[in-house]
């Protein structure tokens, strides 16, 4: 007797983010010897992309492959479970996963959906979609001032930070970004970075690609499953899903870094794209503004503060310690592959 779970993603099948989903589906199928089958569907097939969380709660879908940052309209705490801007307190991917598994983060994540939002869901981290680039620009940028008066396609909490810094944030569906860019409706845009940006065709419109960004330097996507569906699964199937999600996270994360490295090479060599470092001033301005916004949100949203504090406690133990044990990435990178100066 095959158990079939129907799940939908918040992305179209054309994105490599969707490959993370199908990799997971394939692993579950093989690990269960075909007894547990997950049917993966792209955005919009059953419900519109941004309705997947509510749809999973109502069991229209058995599960969803999504990103918590899309739910900040319900409660801004959601952004923290993606890792949050700046990785939150300087945490990298490994630290954020550490916080989730060893710092009480995953319990808070589930508590957030189940108690705060009163949704019948369980959640697991599955998709490390980062680090993401700062974005694409129609001309070089040097200071925060340069960006004022520019219209940028940016969404969610990152958009909120930019708006607070005086930039103009506009939203539009993925398919409209490139035509809008060609037509001058926008002067800059952030999408995903690397191969995803190339697939959309940014390199054909703009030549100035800045990285890194601090808005999604760590960004973790989620696998949510309806609570009743989860309880009805056998303990073995539950373990298969958990293991497959973790394996997907690791395997896909490494693949993502490789594919983006290849994409950056192609952008530079084939398309004449300028790969530029985001000016420090801009990164600092971003992170300062984010801290202000986070502090303000913490003051009026107790659950936000609870999660933020939990992250701070974990980060304050791990981040400074890692600095003494981890050789700086740039030290060895510069030693073996010095940038031309």
């Amino acid at each position: 007797q095959t158990k079939v779970l129907k799940m939908q993603a918040t992305w179209p099948a054309s994105l490599t983010l969707y490959d993370n989903f199908t990799y997971f589906v394939d692993r579950v199928n093989k690990l269960s010897a075909g007894a547990l089958k997950i049917e993966a569907m792209p955005a919009g097939q059953v419900v519109p992309a941004f309705e997947v969380l509510d749809a999973t709660n109502k069991k229209v879908l058995d599960g969803a492959h999504a990103w918590a940052g899309y739910w900040t309209g319900k409660n801004k705490t959601a952004i923290l479970f993606t890792g949050g801007p700046g990785g939150t307190f300087g945490m990298d991917f490994m630290d954020v996963m550490g916080w989730l598994y060893h710092g009480g983060g995953l319990e808070l994540y589930n508590e957030f959906y189940q108690k705060e939002l009163k949704l019948n869901l369980v959640v697991f981290p599955i998709l490390p979609a980062g680090p993401q680039a700062f974005g694409w620009f129609k001309k070089p940028i040097q200071t925060v001032e340069d960006m004022k008066g520019m219209k940028c396609r940016q969404t969610g909490m990152a958009g909120e930070v930019w708006q607070a810094l005086g930039f103009t944030v506009v939203n539009m569906p993925g398919g409209e970004i490139i035509p809008s860019a060609q037509r001058g409706v926008i002067d800059c845009a952030e999408w995903v970075g690397g191969i995803e940006d190339m697939q959309l065709g940014f390199h054909n419109v703009w030549k100035y690609h800045y990285s890194p960004g601090l808005h999604e330097n760590v960004t973790v996507g989620e696998l949510v499953i309806n609570g009743d569906v989860w309880k009805e699964l056998s303990p073995q199937h539950q373990e298969i899903i958990k293991s497959a999600a973790n394996e997907t996270f690791l395997v896909w994360w490494t693949k993502w870094q490789r594919q983006n490295a290849d994409a950056l090479i192609e952008m530079q060599q084939k398309h004449g794209v300028q790969i530029l470092r985001t000016p420090t001033e801009i990164l600092l301005a971003f992170i300062k503004k984010w801290d202000e916004i986070a502090a303000a949100e913490g003051a009026r949203n107790p659950f936000f503060k609870k999660v933020h504090d939990s992250q701070k406690a974990y980060a304050s133990a791990v981040v400074p310690y890692k600095r003494s044990y981890f050789p700086p990435y740039s030290f060895m990178a510069n030693y073996y592959f010095p940038t031309e100066k």
Partner: peptide
């Protein structure tokens, strides 16, 4: 839950 729009910073 006093849900707000998450389409723009206006919310």
């Amino acid at each position: 839950i006093n849900e707000t729009s998450d389409q723009t910073p206006w919310r």
